[in-house]
Design a protein around this nucleic acid. Structure first.
Length: 285
DNA sequence: GTGCGATCCCGTCACCAATG
DNA sequence: CATTGGTGACGGGATCGCAC
């Protein structure tokens, strides 16, 4: 199978597999899912073949270098549920070491929906919507930040690059957010990148300066124009992918920071509870 | 030193939603 | 409706740590 054909095949089956996994979890049956048909392949590609559970998402788990179709609901203390998507990688697993991950309740979609069996059809549609198209990291992070003061907000445009977000500095995980191997995204901020990178790409200068489309007549000119458009599209997508990955990293770091903060809060509350218990309980000699 | 697995990073493709 | 931006997924190269 060709590369593209194979990708399409896997991707199509992957969505189906995810849905089947969820639905089979819900009714407790093990269906003849695509997971079986593709499991060998997907395991070699991703190292995982199912929706991540608590251990994987709550930063205690170890992700692989490759992605998995992770769609997981995270219930905030405020009661709102946000869905965590994509690969949850933990570059610094040692940061979160406490086994007490009690405040952040993470469950699979199926588990979350357990209490709403009566709305099965509607929920199924909702889940399919969630799986078919999930909000961007920016949106998710902004949802988080709107509920939780401690979570920094990813702003709409370049201002998000202005140095280390102030809220991050107060968190327990003071890691560098903008680290990349190339140093392209530093604390000094960056511009819309295809403006920066244009002179350095492989795009031939002569092609860049090609005549306007209205004056193209010969097949050679048309081909050059098509090539130029393709190069431009690739360049933009390249930069978009970089930006997307940077946001994803930031998003994951924010989640990790949030977990760390909540763990501290949780520990304090437990200690407080124990103290109150000691005070209230009668002494038995 | 070498082989190997794990992980990271990048470019690209495909797809979808938003937008003009 | 065509274009554009965002993102999941894939493949491949680079790097790292470890066992031998």
């Amino acid at each position: 199978m060709s590369k593209c054909g194979r990708k399409k095949y896997i991707k199509t089956n992957l969505r189906q597999m995810t849905m089947e996994t969820i639905e089979s979890q819900q009714d407790g049956s093990v269906t003849d899912s695509v997971a079986e048909r593709e499991s060998a392949d997907m395991q070699t590609q991703t190292g995982q073949n199912s929706i991540p559970t608590l251990a994987q998402v709550s930063v205690a788990g170890s992700g692989t270098g490759r992605g998995s179709p992770a769609v997981t609901l995270v219930q905030l203390p405020s009661g709102q549920t946000v869905h965590v998507q994509g690969v949850i990688q933990t570059p610094q697993p040692s940061v979160i070491q406490s086994p007490q991950i009690q405040t952040v309740q993470v469950a699979t979609i199926a588990e979350t929906d357990e209490s709403a069996d009566s709305e099965g059809v509607i929920d199924s549609h909702k889940r399919r919507e969630i799986l078919s198209r999930r909000p961007s990291y920016r949106k998710i992070l902004n949802e988080l930040s709107s509920d939780v003061p401690g979570v920094p907000k990813i702003e709409e445009e370049k201002s998000e690059e202005e140095g280390t977000p102030p809220n991050i500095a107060t968190m327990a995980v003071p890691t560098s957010i903008y680290q990349t191997s190339t140093g392209q995204y530093t604390a000094t901020g960056d511009m819309p990148t295809y403006q920066i990178r244009a002179p350095t790409t492989a795009l031939p200068q002569g092609v860049v300066m090609a005549a306007s489309p209205g004056s193209l007549h010969s097949p050679q000119q048309l081909a050059e124009e098509a090539t130029r458009k393709r190069e431009l599209r690739l360049m933009k997508n390249r930069e978009a992918a970089k930006e997307c990955r940077r946001r994803k990293k930031e998003y994951v770091k924010c989640l990790e920071s949030r977990v760390a903060v909540l763990e501290v809060q949780n520990k304090k509350l437990i200690e407080e509870l124990e103290t109150l218990k000691d005070i209230c309980s009668p002494k038995t000699d």
